[in-house]
């Protein structure tokens, strides 16, 4: 199968959906000629013109609000938010407006919009360009949240997002834009709420999201060298969450490590770990482990930044300790 980068996969998904449906359009900063700073959208304005690939001023709440209104009245906007960190600027439009409109209208209005943005540290971009903020929006009922972990996932999930009748926030890992993966030429969609068992294993389940799927896979390689068989599960979407696949895997392996690049406290790892504890407690042989980004603003200095995120080594250590029965509670 041909291999393309995550960036090309996103580009293809948008182009295909725009060809399929005239009402789909995209707006954001430097999305047209510049094709975004990450060059994800190069070529789209040439095909679809400036009416459908719409360059905006640096006015995030404004253009997100415009997308909400357009979505309520017949268009299907894709908002391009250059950095995930800017989600703080658009929270009102996203969480008070987009998320609640369908419910508040008694099901009469819909907001079929997609907000594409990114996450991920270790790009030396400091505290306001390195956050992984998906847990914030996952907390708000009415929003769906997708976390692609490869080019293949990015394309399939984005196409599904565009066709969904709800506001969907999709976070791409900004360090992965150039990473290639096999992506079929034929059209495909990846349904929301269906986790992917990336690799099968017996001894421990590593549940990783987005950037942390790769980390989990590398950790599984390290563990294999220690005769520990790790299963890697990628939830793909955290809202909706495929609880059944996660619980099924944990019931099989009896151990779980949940890895996500958001801050560890009050985040995605906490949610998934607590669901496992609630619904698979009697199957567990070790306490469920959570590994998120440290609870600190992401520091600029490489010497510090690299300490803030889980690594294959740290995940393998934690998972290995769980399997060997070395995790003890303080008395």
């Amino acid at each position: 199968m041909r291999e393309i980068s995550l960036s090309q996969a996103v580009n293809e998904a948008i182009a295909e959906e725009m060809r399929r449906d005239e009402t789909v359009f995209l707006l954001g900063e430097d999305v047209a000629e510049a094709g975004t700073p990450f060059k994800v959208l190069s070529g789209l304005v040439e095909e679809f013109g400036p009416q459908r690939i719409l360059d905006t001023p640096i006015s995030e709440p404004g253009f997100t609000g415009i997308a909400v209104g357009a979505a309520m009245t017949g268009l299907r906007p894709i908002v391009d938010l250059m950095f995930g960190d800017f989600i703080f600027l658009v929270m009102d439009q996203l969480c008070n407006q987009a998320a609640k409109t369908h419910y508040m209208s008694g099901g009469k209005l819909t907001v079929p919009m997609v907000l594409r943005t990114n996450l991920g540290a270790t790009r030396r971009s400091a505290a306001q360009h390195s956050q992984s903020l998906h847990a914030l929006v996952a907390h708000i009922p009415g929003l769906k949240v997708a976390l692609p972990s490869s080019a293949y996932e990015a394309k399939g999930l984005l196409k599904t997002a565009v066709r969904d009748n709800n506001p969907v926030v999709i976070f791409e890992d900004k360090l992965m834009y150039q990473d290639k993966a096999p992506v079929p030429e034929e059209e495909y969609l990846i349904p929301f709420g269906q986790a992917n068992i990336v690799r099968e294993g017996r001894d421990v389940t590593l549940i990783g999201t987005s950037s942390m799927v790769q980390v989990a896979e590398e950790a599984a390689d390290i563990l294999a060298g220690q005769n520990i068989s790790a299963e890697v599960v990628d939830p793909r979407t955290i809202v909706p969450l495929d609880e059944a696949t996660i619980l099924g895997s944990v019931k099989k392996t009896s151990r779980a490590v949940v890895i996500d690049e958001g801050h560890q406290s009050y985040g995605v790892t906490a949610e998934i770990a607590s669901r496992i504890a609630e619904k698979a407690f009697y199957h567990l042989d070790a306490p469920v482990q959570r590994m998120g980004a440290m609870d600190v603003p992401i520091p600029f200095s490489p010497a510090l930044e690299d300490l803030t995120v889980p690594t294959p080594q740290s995940v393998a250590e934690r998972a290995g300790a769980a399997v060997r029965g070395e995790l003890f509670h303080d008395a």
Partner: peptide, 25 residues
């Protein structure tokens, strides 16, 4: 900033510079 801020967050309080900012505006 002890290396925590970098170029986009450089600040120098002693001279009244409250800091660079990576959020436009």
């Amino acid at each position: 900033c002890r290396g925590k801020g970098g170029s986009m967050h450089i600040a120098d309080q002693d001279n009244g510079n409250l800091g660079a900012n990576a959020i436009v505006g």
